[in-house]
């Protein structure tokens, strides 16, 4: 398969850009429609696959990037040794999960769900730019509100917040009062 002009333009743009390019930006720079761009992306990935390249074009955090295959994680990691931060603790992951679905949310809201103090987890996530302070809640004490960042989406390879796992189900769950939760018996088949 030989790539057409548009696909090659898209490939060049993504490769050369210093930030990830959204579908709108790709349309603008190439003067094409979204459908054509998506098809061009498919063709690029097909060539990568057919010719056994170590690369794929993926959509993460609202933009397209060229990504290395997971297979080469160990080799590529060497480039960033000592610079790449370690994995998140369970406390940080749980806190991350709560913030991701109920953002913007206060520390108290996170703690009421986790049932435990979240100070250090929140600090870790702030330091790693996974969350940011997005304002204050206009209630007594004006507590800080936390929201996720683009780094969060990149770190977990999410295209956008709608792609969070079980998004709709949890949105619904969070919107429910406890009595509604009882009635719905949503989790009757859950873990025993």
């Amino acid at each position: 398969m030989i790539l057409d002009r548009l696909a090659r333009e898209v490939e060049a743009l993504i490769f050369a850009s210093d930030g990830s390019l959204s579908i709108q930006e790709l349309c603008e720079y190439t003067g094409s429609g979204e459908d054509s761009i998506h098809q061009a992306l498919d063709r690029i990935n097909k060539v990568f696959l057919d010719q056994q390249h170590a690369l794929t074009v993926i959509e993460v955090a609202g933009g397209f990037r060229i990504a290395t295959d997971r297979e080469f994680g160990d080799v590529v990691s060497q480039l960033f040794e000592g610079r790449k931060p370690g994995k998140l603790s369970r406390a940080a992951l749980e806190t991350m999960a709560v913030i991701a679905y109920s953002q913007p949310c206060t520390r108290a809201a996170i703690e009421s769900i986790r049932g435990v103090n979240c100070d250090s987890a929140i600090r870790t996530l702030l330091e790693r730019d996974m969350i940011k302070i997005s304002g204050r809640m206009e209630t007594p004490g004006r507590p800080l509100l936390y929201s996720t960042t683009l780094v969060f989406l990149e770190y977990f390879g999410l295209a956008d917040l709608d792609h969070l796992p079980r998004f709709d189900e949890i949105e619904e769950l969070l919107g429910m009062s406890s009595s509604e939760m009882e009635e719905r018996d949503l989790f009757g088949t859950g873990e025993k």
Partner: peptide, 20 residues
């Protein structure tokens, strides 16, 4: 969900992107 995020983390620490 945290467990799912952890699995994603596992995968995505082995994937490197450009730009990124």
């Amino acid at each position: 969900i945290a467990e799912e995020l952890q699995r994603s983390e596992e995968v995505w620490t082995e994937i490197f992107t450009s730009p990124g």
